[in-house]
């Protein structure tokens, strides 16, 4: 395994992109680290990786990494990625999104990508808040939590993102947190190797805009919170629903094999081109 220094030198862009814009104590750097470790462990070539993002703090991830990188519009990353993957199936496509990005403005694109089972990996940075715009409630903000647009406490019930994508048909779904870095790296690695649409939900922390308003004003408290609420899926299976109240399950939640979109389409092309060729011979 590469040392941190080696990892940074190998995968980060060094021309004028640093310091990065994430706040001190932000979890995004931890996620990026895990992604790079996973990529390195598999040995993917930088030329063959396309990293695509939407808008928000997560959206800034691609600019720092030395891959083919595409920073799209808010919520649309998966749709851009779909076109790119179909145009160039040899690319390893990694989509990074925030919780608002993926499940509010981009929710429709996300569920349909799950349904199509197109071979790419979506990594959702779930920090329960819109961070870049200053702390408005998102579709994953917990019930009764506070936000700048919910100073009285949130009265909307949050999405369970992993459950959402599972129901929408993703063929690989995993969840971890920025506390469980080893597990997270391992899950991203498995997701990247999975053939089909894979999703890794990462519970991360935004002390600046979420923690401060919700009695977790510093990064350490927030990471401890992540540690406390995480229950490995194996353990959760033997727990009662009331015991799981307020917890999240972690690990591989879904792993199944189904026909992959690009491969199916390539087969259609093979058949249609053969048929068209025969047609012209006549």
């Amino acid at each position: 395994m590469l040392s941190n220094k080696q990892l940074l030198e190998k995968y980060l862009r060094h021309d004028k992109k640093f310091p990065h814009l994430w706040c001190p104590g932000c979890g995004n750097g931890t996620i990026l680290h895990a992604i790079l470790l996973a990529i390195d462990a598999i040995g993917l070539k930088k030329d063959e990786i396309a990293m695509i993002s939407g808008i928000g703090c997560s959206g800034r991830t691609p600019v720092y990494v030395d891959f083919n990188t595409l920073h799209t519009t808010h919520g649309r990353a998966v749709a851009f990625a779909t076109g790119l993957k179909l145009a160039k199936p040899s690319l390893h496509v990694i989509v990074v999104m925030g919780d608002g990005d993926a499940s509010a403005i981009g929710g429709n694109h996300l569920i349909h990508a799950c349904r199509r089972n197109i071979d790419m990996t979506a990594i959702i940075y779930n920090n329960s808040i819109y961070g870049m715009t200053g702390g408005q409630y998102s579709p994953t903000t917990p019930y009764h939590a506070k936000a700048t647009t919910a100073t009285h406490g949130n009265i909307e019930r949050p999405f369970d993102l992993a459950e959402l994508v599972k129901t929408a048909g993703a063929t690989f779904v995993a969840r971890s947190t920025t506390y469980h870095v080893r597990q997270l790296t391992n899950l991203i690695e498995k997701a990247l190797l999975h053939k089909g649409f894979s999703v890794v939900e990462v519970i991360t922390h935004c002390p600046t805009t979420f923690g401060r308003r919700n009695k977790m004003p510093d990064p350490v408290t927030m990471v401890k919170w992540e540690k406390e609420i995480a229950v490995p899926i194996e353990k959760a299976k033997n727990m009662k629903p009331e015991e799981l109240e307020g917890k999240i399950t972690t690990g591989i939640l879904v792993e199944k094999e189904l026909p992959e979109y690009c491969e199916q389409y390539e087969e259609i092309i093979r058949q249609r081109m053969k048929k068209a060729k025969r047609g012209t011979k006549k």
């Binding site: 695509i52 799209t72 649309r76 749709a79 851009f80 076109g83 145009a87």
Partner: peptide, 15 residues
């Protein structure tokens, strides 16, 4: 929205 996003993605892929 997804349609135009997809064609931009494909064009970036050289198609």
């Amino acid at each position: 929205i997804g349609s135009i996003a997809a064609i931009i993605g494909a064009s970036i892929g050289g198609v």
